[in-house]
Amino acid sequence: MMTRVKNKSVLLAVLIFLLAPLFAHAEGLVVGQTFNGDKEIQVSFAVSVDKNVAENIHNYTVFEESDPDIKLVLSAATLATDNKSVTLQFEDVLNTAMTHVVEVKGLGGVEKTTFKVSKSYLGYLFSILISALLINNFVFTKYLGLCVFFGTSKKKTTAKGMGVVFTLVMVASAIMSWFFYQFILIPYDLNFLQIVVFIGLVSLTVQAVDTILRKVNPILFNSFGVFLVLVIANCVIIAVPLIVANNNYNFFETFMLALGAGGGFLLALYLMSSVSERLLLANIPPTFKGLPIAFIVAGQFAMAFLGFSGLQIF
């Protein structure tokens, strides 16, 4: 019972943490703005607005945030019947991945109203998570961590334990690496020390998790401790900070990538171990026993995971 309450509060904390960026948006006359398909922007207002102003396309200036000098051409602006929302139509297809800035003149008596339209940041973060979990699964599409993957995917229980430990270490070390990278390596132009610093941090995290787990929860340590040793010499763990450094991710993005990578590894291990348990009962030709058949199965999984590419939720 206690653990369930604990779990819930942890879940709540994570949820709040994830939702935090949502509340960062300023509010005013404009209460909502979204892309509507790839040629329209929908804006809703707090109060009713003047139809003459709102439907005059010359009152609007729209551009992509990074290209303020390129104005996008509007073809129409239509006010909904309740006078509270307007749909802007554009001549060309919008690049919805970019943040768009909309300036409106004379609306609601204000000389100029400026607001930004972008895909929801939460959606973007979620897409990083999904991408690391499924589309760019670290085992099946990036081919990382195979040694441990084939070594520990024989039994479901081992697979689960391994996956959980990996996710924990990965998140912790990725966050630490992010701080180091942003506040030490970049400012002092020490980028070439990346590899040494990251591998050092990973070993440090593993050591720390080992010590803490041993003291705080010996039961958990007894079941998971064995996997910790395997974590250090593994490319998945070190790949996450390297990818973060390559793409210049911010804190939230780093967290999501690490979570997705760990989750993806857990998923891959679990899937593989389920198959391995079945394979024990199968009649495999002697030449294929052991690793060869495991590779073939992994190849089939990899092909299946190819199907996820191009998946877009937001």
């Binding site: 099946f140 599409t141 081919y143 294929f288 690793l291 060869p292 058949i293 495991a294 590779f295 073939i296 992994a298 190849g299 990899a302 092909m303 995971f305 190819l306």
Partner: peptide, 11 residues
């Protein structure tokens, strides 16, 4: 293709 690596190594 990317996933063929597994098959080649396995075979």
């Amino acid at each position: 293709l990317p996933s063929a690596g597994f098959f080649v190594v396995g075979l």
